[in-house]
Nucleic acid binder design. Structure first.
Lengths: 191, 191
DNA sequence: GTCTATAACGTGATAGAC
DNA sequence: GTCTATCACGTTATAGAC
C-alpha cells in the first residue's frame, strides 16, 4: 500500500545516497530515474529543477541532524552519550558504504551550487556547530571532558576531525578514521 | 621569452585553481580554454583525456607538498617551524581565495574519478601523513609538542582538523578556521 | 502522477589542415 | 603546437497526452 508520495520519497532517498557518494555534480537525473524504473520527467514533476532537489536533500540532512541530536538528548542527556552517539553514527555510516559527512561535500562543491542550496548548507553547518558546542560545554562543566578555550572552538575542531578523517579514510582505509577517533577521545581527556 | 611548454603550464595552473574551487566534476575544458584564449583541441593536445590532466594536477600537488616540506625541513628543521609553516600555508591559501585542501576534494569526488587519479590521490595522502607523523614525533621527542598515543594518530587528527575546518570556513566564515587552529595548538600543549 | 517526445545546450573527444 | 570542424553523447528542462 503505497502513499501518493511514494516515488517522491524514493527519489529523495536515492538522491541522498548519490550526493553522499559522488558529490552534487557527480550524479544526474538519469542516475535516479533508471534504478527507480521511472522517467526523468517524473522526477521533474516532484522537483522541477535540480536546485529544488538539492535543497530538499539538505533539508533532509537538517532533519536527520535534528532527530538524532534530539535522540541523543533523550537517551540520558549525558554529554558523553551524546558525543559518542554522534561518533557512532559517523563510524557506522562510513563502514556501511564509505559515506562521509554532507557538510564537507557541500563545502567542496559550494561555488558550483545554486544559491538556495548554498544558503541552506550554511544553516546546516550552523545548526551542527551550535549543538556540538552545547554538548561539549555541558560535558566540561560536568567534569566529563577536559579542554581549554571556548567550547565553540573545540566544537569546530571536533567536527573537523571527524569530517576530515572520514574523507582521508576513503583514500587510506577505515583504520585511519578509527585511530583519529581514538585520538579525539584522548584529546578530550577520555583515554 | 616563453618556453615551448608555456601553454601547457598555463593550463595546469588554471586547472589547478578550478579543481580547488569547484571539484573535478565542476569544471570543463571550456573553463580552461576560454580564459587562456586557446581552443579545446589545444588542451587535448597537451592532455589527451581529462584523466591525464587530472593525474598531472595531483602530481603537481605532490610536488608542491614535497617542495614545501623540504623547505620546512631546511628552515631550521625545528618541528614547530615545520608545523607552523604548513598551517600558515593553509591559512594563507584560504584567505587568498577560499582554497581548501585538495585531499578533501579528491576524497569527495573519489568514486567519480578515473582509476589513475584515484591511485595518485592515495599516494598524495600517504605522503602527507608520513611527513606530518615525522614532524610530530620529532617535536614530541624534543619536548615541543605534548600529546598521547602514536604520532601517526595525532598526525591524522591534525591533518583532519585543518582540512575539515577550512571546508566549514567556506560555509561559516574564515574565523572558524582561525579558531580551529588556535584550538589545535592548545591540544598540542602550545597555548 | 507518470508518460512520450523533444528542445537547447554542454560535454569530452577526434581528424586533419596549417 | 594550435587551429577548424565535427562527432556522439549526456545534461537539465519543458509541452502535452494519458
Amino acid at each position: 500500500m503505497r502513499s501518493r508520495t511514494d516515488t517522491r520519497s524514493k527519489i529523495v532517498e536515492l538522491a541522498q545516497q548519490l550526493l553522499l557518494e559522488r558529490g552534487y555534480n557527480g550524479f544526474s537525473y538519469q542516475d535516479i530515474s533508471k534504478p527507480l524504473g521511472v522517467k526523468n520527467a517524473a522526477i521533474h514533476y516532484h522537483f522541477p529543477t535540480k536546485e529544488d532537489l538539492g535543497v530538499a536533500l539538505i533539508n533532509e540532512f537538517r532533519e536527520i541532524l535534528h532527530t538524532r541530536t534530539t535522540d541523543f538528548m533523550q537517551s540520558g542527556g549525558n554529554p558523553v552519550n551524546q558525543l559518542e552517539g554522534y561518533i557512532g553514527f559517523i563510524l557506522d555510516s562510513f563502514k556501511r558504504d564509505k559515506t562521509i559527512c554532507p557538510m564537507g561535500i557541500l563545502a567542496v562543491d559550494l561555488f558550483t551550487l545554486p544559491e538556495k542550496m548554498q544558503i541552506h548548507a550554511q544553516l546546516l553547518v550552523n545548526e551542527m556547530i551550535r549543538w556540538l558546542t552545547r554538548v561539549l560545554d555541558a560535558g566540561r562543566d560536568a567534569g566529563l571532558f577536559f579542554f581549554n578555550g571556548p567550547a565553540v572552538d573545540k566544537a569546530v575542531a571536533v567536527k573537523s576531525v571527524l569530517q576530515g578523517a572520514a574523507q582521508l579514510a576513503r583514500l587510506n582505509g577505515a583504520g585511519i578514521l578509527d585511530n583519529a577517533v581514538v585520538q579525539l577521545r584522548r584529546d578530550l581527556g577520555r583515554a
